[in-house]
Design a protein around this nucleic acid. Structure first.
Lengths: 340, 340
DNA sequence: ATAAATAAGTTAACCGTTAAACCTAATAAG
DNA sequence: CTTATTAGGTTTAACGGTTAACTTATTTAT
C-alpha cells in the first residue's frame, strides 16, 4: 500500500501540515532543516500525494475536460483526424502547464459537461458544438472556464476560437475562378442549418455572384464529412447533368473520398476535374494528387484555445473572446487551370 | 454553488446515508416512498454527486489512464495517427462501460504512471512502451490493472496485446517476392534494439533467406517513422547504389513519406518501384497510389485491449495475457509485379 | 526590561461521499 | 407471549489531503 501523508509525517516526526507545506512549497512556514528531512523521506518512500484527496480539498484538479463530437456514432473510425489532431495538440499544450486531459466524445455535450464538473476540472474545451446547444451548456457549466473551438456563435458572449468561415468559402471560390473555373460543385453538410457550413457556403456563393455566376440546387451535393460519403458524393458529381470542372469539399477527408469517387467514375484529378478541400490536415501531403485546400491552421487554433483557457484559469475570471484565426489557400496539386 | 448530498438530505428530511443509498441503487435499504421523494429532489435540483469525493471514499474512479508515446517531442504533429486512432477506439470502448479516459503523452512512461495512480484510476493502457521500461513500470503501478499495446515482452508476464511482428515482416517479404521482387529495401527504426522492429526485420530477412536472398547493410535505411523522415529515406533509396525494385516501410505514414521522396527523385510508384507499408491506417485509402500494407487490425487490437482490461477490473485480479492479433497483407496499388 | 514581531510548528476543521455499525419499531417465528 | 428477524433508517468514522487559526520560543524594537 502506498504511503500517505500521515505516514510521512510520522516517520519525519512532524505534523501532516508541515509535510503538506513542504511538498507544496510553502517554505516560509518551515525550516531548512525540516524541509531537507521531509523531502528525503518523501523521495526514499516514493511518496506521491493523492490527487483525488488534494482535488477534493482544494476544489481544483489540474485537469482539463475535452468534449469531442462523435461524427458517426457507430462507425469504428468515427472521429475525424481533424479532431484527433487538435486533441493531440491540446494535450501537448496542457502538458507543458502540468495539466492532464480528460476526454469524452459524445453526441450531445450537455450530458458530459456536468460530469466533468463533478471532477472539479479546472477548465473545459468543447470542440464543434452547435450554436443551439450553447445556452444549455452555459447554464450547466456555470463558473468553469471554458473555451469552444469551432462554434459559430459570435452573439453569445462565450470564448470561442474559430476561423472566418465566410472567408474560407469565399477564398475557395475566388481561387477556383482565378483558375478559370465557372462550374463548381459544393460538397458538404446541409448549407441551411445555422453553423459554420452555412457561413462557408455564403462566402462561396457570394464570390460566385460577384462574377455573375448563379448557384442552383444542382451545384450542391449534401454529404456527411467522412471518406465513404465522399466517394458517394464524388460519383454523383461525376454523373450529374451539369458538367463541373471543380468541386469544393467541406473537409479534407471528404475531399479524399470525392477524389476517389471521381476516379472510380473515370475522371482524373486534376486533369478532368479539380478538387479543393478544407482543413489542411497533414494527410493532404500524403494524397496523390496532393490536396489543395483551405487551411485552418490547426496548430494556431489549438494553441490560442489553450492560451485563452489558461488566461481564464489564471485570472480566475470568465473572459469572452471571439477569435478568428486566419484562413488561406494552400496550393498543392489537385486544382489545375482551365481555359474557356 | 452546486448542491451537495447534505443539501439534498436536508430537503428530503433524511440522512446523507439514505440519499447515498438511493443514488447508488442500494434500494433494499430504503422504502419505495423515500426513493421516489429523494429522486425527485435530486432531479429538481439537478444534483450530481462529486466524482472527486466519491472517488476518494470508494478508492475507485471510473477513469482509465492512457499513456501514449510522443514520437518526436517537439513537433506539432508528433503523435502518429496510428496512436490517435487507437485512442479514439479506446475512448469509444470505455465510454460504453461508463468510464472516462485520462490521456497523457510523454517520453518516458515511468513518470506518468504514478500520477495516474494518485487519481485512483481503475485501469491503465500503455501504448508502445519498450520492453526495457516494463520492469520499472510494473514496479510502480502495483495492483492497477494494466494492459499494454504493442510491447514486445512475451517473457514478462504482463497483459499485452500485440501482433505477430515476425509474421508481419515475413509476409511482407513473401508477398514482394511473390511479385518477383528480389532487391528490397527495408526502411524503419533501428533493427538491432530489442522490440517489434527487430522482430519484423527478422521475419523479413528470414523470408528472403529462404529464397537465398542475402540482406546486407545496404538494404537497411534507418529512419524514424513520420512523414518527413520518410521523404528523406525515399530519396536515399532512390539514389542508393543498389537498384531496388521494392521497399518495405515500418509504418504507413513513413511509407507515404517514402513514396513522396521517391517521386521527388523521379521514380514512379509502383511503375518504377513498389512500396509496402505497415499498419493499414484509413489513410491508406486516401493516398494515390493507394498503399498496399501489412494490416494490424487496429480495431481488434483496441477492442481486445478493452476486453482484457475490463476482465481484470471486474474480476479484481491481474491476469497475464499475451494476445497476438493476426496480421495480413492488404493489397492496394503501391506494389506491382516485376518480371526478371 | 518589556512589548511586538517573527520563525517554526501544531491542531483541528473541512472538502463531499461512502459504508460499517448501530438503532428502533414492526412483523414473523416458535 | 417472548424472541428473532426484517424493514427502514441514522450515526459516525473513514478516505487523504489542505489550511486557517492557534501556540510557543526566540528575536527585534523601544
Amino acid at each position: 500500500m502506498a504511503m500517505k501523508i500521515k505516514d510521512i509525517a510520522k516517520v519525519a516526526g512532524v505534523s501532516t501540515a508541515t509535510v503538506s507545506n513542504v511538498i507544496n512549497g510553502n517554505h516560509n512556514k518551515v525550516s531548512e532543516e525540516t524541509i531537507k528531512r521531509v523531502m528525503q523521506i518523501v523521495e526514499e518512500n516514493d511518496y506521491n500525494p493523492s490527487a483525488t484527496a488534494r482535488s477534493l480539498a482544494r476544489k481544483e484538479s489540474k485537469i482539463i475536460g475535452v468534449v469531442m463530437p462523435n461524427l458517426a456514432p457507430d462507425e469504428p473510425f468515427s472521429i475525424s483526424p481533424y479532431y484527433t489532431q487538435i486533441l493531440a495538440m491540446l494535450e501537448k499544450y496542457v502538458r507543458t502547464k502540468g495539466y492532464y486531459l480528460m476526454v469524452r466524445s459524445v453526441g450531445k455535450c450537455a450530458e458530459i459537461v456536468p460530469v466533468f464538473s463533478t471532477w472539479n476540472v479546472d477548465g473545459m474545451i468543447i470542440l464543434g458544438a452547435f450554436r443551439d446547444e450553447v445556452p444549455e451548456l452555459e447554464d450547466k457549466l456555470k463558473k468553469v472556464p471554458t473555451v469552444y473551438i469551432d462554434t459559430y456563435a459570435s452573439d453569445l458572449n462565450i470564448a470561442n476560437i474559430g476561423i472566418d468561415d465566410y472567408k474560407g468559402g469565399y477564398l475557395a471560390a475566388r481561387y477556383l475562378m482565378g483558375k478559370g473555373h465557372r462550374e463548381i460543385a459544393f460538397v458538404g453538410p446541409n448549407v441551411d442549418s445555422p453553423g459554420v457550413i452555412k457561413q462557408r457556403f455564403k462566402g462561396f456563393s457570394d464570390a460566385l455572384a460577384e462574377k455573375n455566376i448563379q448557384i442552383t440546387a444542382d451545384n450542391i451535393f449534401e454529404s456527411l464529412t467522412m471518406f465513404e460519403q465522399g466517394v458517394e458524393a464524388g460519383r454523383k458529381v461525376a454523373f450529374s447533368k451539369k458538367k463541373f470542372t471543380a468541386v469544393v469539399s467541406m473537409s479534407d477527408i471528404l475531399a479524399f473520398g470525392v477524389m476517389e469517387g471521381l476516379k472510380l467514375s473515370g475522371l482524373k484529378v486534376p486533369d478532368d476535374i479539380s478538387v479543393i478541400g478544407f482543413d489542411n490536415l497533414p494527410e493532404c501531403r500524403y494524397s496523390n494528387p496532393q490536396l489543395t485546400t483551405v487551411s485552418q491552421n490547426l496548430e494556431k487554433k489549438a494553441h490560442d484555445a489553450g492560451d485563452a483557457l489558461f488566461r481564464m484559469i489564471e485570472s480566475k475570471e470568465m473572459i469572452s473572446v471571439n477569435e478568428i484565426v486566419d484562413v488561406e489557400i494552400v496550393e498543392r496539386q489537385s486544382v489545375r487551370e482551365v481555359y474557356n
